[in-house]
Each structure stands twice: as structure tokens, then as C-alpha cells.
Design a protein around this nucleic acid. Sequence first.
DNA 1: CATAAATAGGACAAATTTGTCCGAATAAAT
DNA 2: ATTTATTCGGACAAATTTGTCCTATTTATG
Lengths: 144, 144
Amino acid sequence: MFSKACEYGIRAATYIATQSLTGRRVSLREIAEEIDSPMAFTAKILQQLSRNQILDSAKGAAGGFEIERARIDQIRLGDIVFAIDGNAVYAGCGLGLRECNAAKPCPVHDKFVAIRNDLQQMLENTSLYEMTLGLEAGLTYLKR
Amino acid sequence: MFSKACEYGIRAATYIATQSLTGRRVSLREIAEEIDSPMAFTAKILQQLSRNQILDSAKGAAGGFEIERARIDQIRLGDIVFAIDGNAVYAGCGLGLRECNAAKPCPVHDKFVAIRNDLQQMLENTSLYEMTLGLEAGLTYLKR
DNA sequence: CATAAATAGGACAAATTTGTCCGAATAAAT
DNA sequence: ATTTATTCGGACAAATTTGTCCTATTTATG
């Protein structure tokens, strides 16, 4: 559904958020270990999230990544997906037609629209904060 | 959502179905033109669908592809997707975890399950025949 | 100031997906 | 029987995505 880059990005942002909630800034190394992702590749994705103001990075010794407390509430899962995969998830015909809309639809246009609307709703309604809740309680996981 | 191969496969199967309804067997060349897909690549996909009994192929002059009338009603969109993309659509964690289930879920496991169930329902409830209806009536399209 | 620890970014490499080419096999038509 | 039109299948090529490596830059700390 999402690209690998996007999957890593969501997991990374979620982990960073859990740590930022306790005021801890985390390093790339730690992130990659905690979400079990390739470190250098994860670095690229974090850069992208940083450029898109999803998270803040600090260079130098004791540097790392963090997310402002207030932003953890505001950032939606969809923001992260958009920052990495663009609008590919929402746009684009399910059968790959360049133009596909209500006026000239593909044979499954309506059915796909319905499902993508559900997906979009979910992505827009899910906050980063919400994703951190189960993690701290040990009810959800970011690796394995 | 689906691979390019899968998109072409669905479009091809749908076109073949419309023509098989009138007893016409169609050639690869015609299919590729009608669904606007790369011919040689489409050939590979049709082979795959043929091996999976989604459609029948006939070699030699006047050969081509067709689908038995009775099968057009029986084949579901999900059968085509499964023949090409396997169970990737249903299985697999939304965040890319190797193991993700109700016991040890990722932070968005439940939300993804809900959406994927909807998708699965749609794929299993949509028959190839149903997809041909709008096409003949000029209400839906397979290219552009 | 020097050093160490960290991110930034460019170039490159590997893997996967997408797409092409061509010869072999098959079957209808002349 | 030969020709012609077609699918089959293998090898290859291109494009994209995923992943690695190395150097430069930045910043805290002694």
C-alpha cells in the first residue's frame, strides 16, 4: 500500500514521537535499531521528513531528531505519507488510467473511490500522538 | 495499490471478457491497443492469467485470447489480482512489519485491517461480468 | 582550539519492477 | 507443403526503488 520508504518513515516518526514525549532527542542509530530499518536509508527518509517540517533535526554532537510536543498532537498519519509518497495514495486510478473521473470512469472507479475515501479519512483522523499510546503501554510494536 | 502488471491484467481481462460475450476471440495486438498498454509486457501478463485459468489462449493464426461465457460470471476481480500480485494486498503489515497480528500489532493494525477487509470484500464481490457492463454501454473506459 | 559525535548530502550499488526483442512452436489458410 | 499470423518463453534492457558508502558540515565538550 505504501512504499518501503513510507513504512520506515511512519515507524521512525512514531518512535521519535514516543521519545520526544519524555523530552528525549534520539539519534539515527537508535531509531534504526528500534524500528529495525537500514540506517543509511532511514537517514534519507528522516531528511525528507525534516524538510517537510514533520520533525526537527539537530546536527553535531548530542544532535538527533525530535518532534515538538504540540506538533505530536497535530501531525496526522496522512501528513507523513504525503511527505514521502506524495498524493499517489489518493490520486491515481486503481486501474492505472491517466485520466479517470466521474465523467469518464474506469469500470471500478466508484468502488475504488469509496475505499480510498475510507483510507483518506483514516489517515487524516489518526494523529501521531494516538500512535504512540499503545507503544508506551507495550500493546503495540514497531519491529518484528 | 496494485502493481502495473496487475492494472494491465485487470484491464486486459475486462476487455477480453467484453469481446468473449459476443463470441470474439481477440489478439494480443488488439488487446494492447484497446487498453493502451505495452504489447510485449501485456503478453507476459496474459500468459500468467492463462496459466492461472483466468483466461484461455489459442496459438497459431486466428489464435488469441478468450474467456468462457460461464467463467465471466464466476471470475472475481480478486482472482485476477491474486493471480498476478499474490496475496500481497491482503497480507502484510501496513507498516512493513514481518509479523503483525492481533496479538502483537503495529500501532495502526486495527485501522488497516478494517480498510483491507473492505478492499477484500470489494474484490471478492466484483465479478468480471459486472465490469463489462458499463463498457458496452459507453459509460466506462479502459484507456485514457 | 582540538576532538568527537552527530546529521546532510552526493555518488554509487543492488534489487525489483517494468518493458523489449527475438527465436521457437503452433495452427489456419492458401 | 509453404506461408502467414499468432502465442510462448527465454534473455536482455531500462527504469524505479531500495539500500550503502564516504566526505563535508555542524556542534557539544574537554
